[in-house]
Simulated scan of single mutants.
Amino acid sequence: MHHKLVDNSEAKRYEFEVEGHLARIEYIKAQDRIYLTHTEVPDALAGKGIGSALVKASLADIKRQGLTLVPLCPFVALFLKRNPEWKELVLKGINIA
């Protein structure tokens, strides 16, 4: 399943539009850092892997931009714990247990 990632910089969020619904990750960018603050997937899309796909696509974009990640969202932190290959993006000193 492939979805088109939209970086909606005006709304400060990454987005997937799926089946007429909007899944999103809200962020704050400051200098060379990006803080992922909240992930939201509509109930209609729950259990379809949309949240994980959105996080993965967002992390790929963060890597492409050369940004340092500060994962404030618990869902993003859990994704990083389960997918340690992305931990290289995380700000040094932040422990993803």
Results as ranks from 00 to 15, higher is better:
residue 43 D to A: 14
residue 89 L to E: 04
residue 44 A to E: 15
residue 17 E to I: 13
residue 7 D to M: 06
residue 66 G to C: 06
residue 37 T to S: 13
residue 2 H to S: 10
residue 39 T to Y: 00
residue 82 R to E: 14
residue 67 L to S: 06
residue 23 A to G: 07
residue 85 E to W: 10
residue 8 N to A: 11
residue 29 K to G: 02
residue 79 F to K: 01
residue 58 S to Q: 03
residue 81 K to Q: 09
residue 4 K to V: 15
residue 75 F to Y: 15
residue 24 R to T: 02
residue 17 E to R: 14
residue 33 R to T: 04
residue 64 R to F: 12
residue 95 N to W: 04
residue 49 G to C: 02
residue 86 W to D: 01
residue 3 H to M: 10
residue 28 I to N: 02
residue 87 K to I: 13
residue 67 L to R: 11
residue 39 T to Q: 09
residue 8 N to H: 13
residue 9 S to A: 05
residue 96 I to F: 09
residue 47 G to P: 08
residue 34 I to D: 06
residue 17 E to L: 05
residue 26 E to I: 01
residue 68 T to L: 08
residue 55 V to S: 02
residue 46 A to S: 14
residue 9 S to G: 01
residue 81 K to E: 14
residue 36 L to W: 06
residue 51 G to I: 03
residue 95 N to C: 12
residue 23 A to T: 13
residue 15 E to D: 11
residue 57 A to F: 09
residue 14 Y to V: 02
residue 28 I to T: 06
residue 2 H to V: 13
residue 84 P to I: 08
residue 94 I to V: 11
residue 57 A to E: 11
residue 57 A to N: 03
residue 48 K to N: 12
residue 40 E to F: 14
residue 24 R to G: 00
residue 22 L to W: 04
residue 97 A to F: 13
residue 46 A to M: 08
residue 49 G to F: 04
residue 44 A to S: 15
residue 54 L to P: 00
residue 96 I to G: 06
residue 61 D to N: 12
residue 60 A to N: 10
residue 93 G to M: 13
residue 93 G to Y: 04
residue 10 E to D: 10
residue 15 E to Y: 06
residue 80 L to P: 04
residue 80 L to H: 09
residue 76 V to W: 00
residue 15 E to S: 06
residue 49 G to A: 12
residue 25 I to A: 03
residue 15 E to Q: 15
residue 68 T to D: 05
residue 56 K to F: 07
residue 39 T to L: 14
residue 79 F to C: 00
residue 42 P to Y: 12
residue 30 A to E: 08
residue 40 E to C: 07
residue 46 A to F: 13
residue 4 K to C: 09
residue 96 I to D: 09
residue 74 P to E: 07
residue 42 P to G: 12
residue 89 L to Y: 04
residue 7 D to Y: 00
residue 4 K to D: 15
residue 60 A to P: 02
residue 27 Y to L: 00
residue 36 L to C: 10
residue 63 K to D: 14
residue 70 V to C: 01
residue 80 L to G: 02
residue 78 L to Y: 14
residue 1 M to P: 06
residue 85 E to C: 06
residue 34 I to M: 11
residue 41 V to H: 04
residue 6 V to H: 03
residue 39 T to G: 07
residue 24 R to P: 00
residue 31 Q to I: 03
residue 85 E to G: 09
residue 59 L to M: 03
residue 2 H to Y: 11
residue 88 E to H: 15
residue 74 P to V: 07
residue 10 E to F: 06
residue 75 F to P: 01
residue 88 E to Q: 14
residue 12 K to D: 00
residue 83 N to C: 12
residue 1 M to F: 02
residue 30 A to H: 12
residue 2 H to R: 15
residue 86 W to Y: 15
residue 43 D to I: 01
residue 45 L to A: 09
residue 8 N to Y: 04
residue 87 K to Q: 15
residue 38 H to V: 05
residue 92 K to S: 14
residue 53 A to L: 09
residue 35 Y to N: 13
residue 94 I to D: 01
residue 43 D to R: 10
residue 36 L to Y: 11
residue 28 I to C: 05
residue 5 L to V: 10
residue 33 R to S: 02
residue 20 G to P: 08
residue 77 A to H: 04
residue 67 L to Y: 08
residue 50 I to N: 04
residue 83 N to M: 10
residue 62 I to M: 03
residue 29 K to Y: 05
residue 45 L to T: 11
residue 47 G to W: 08
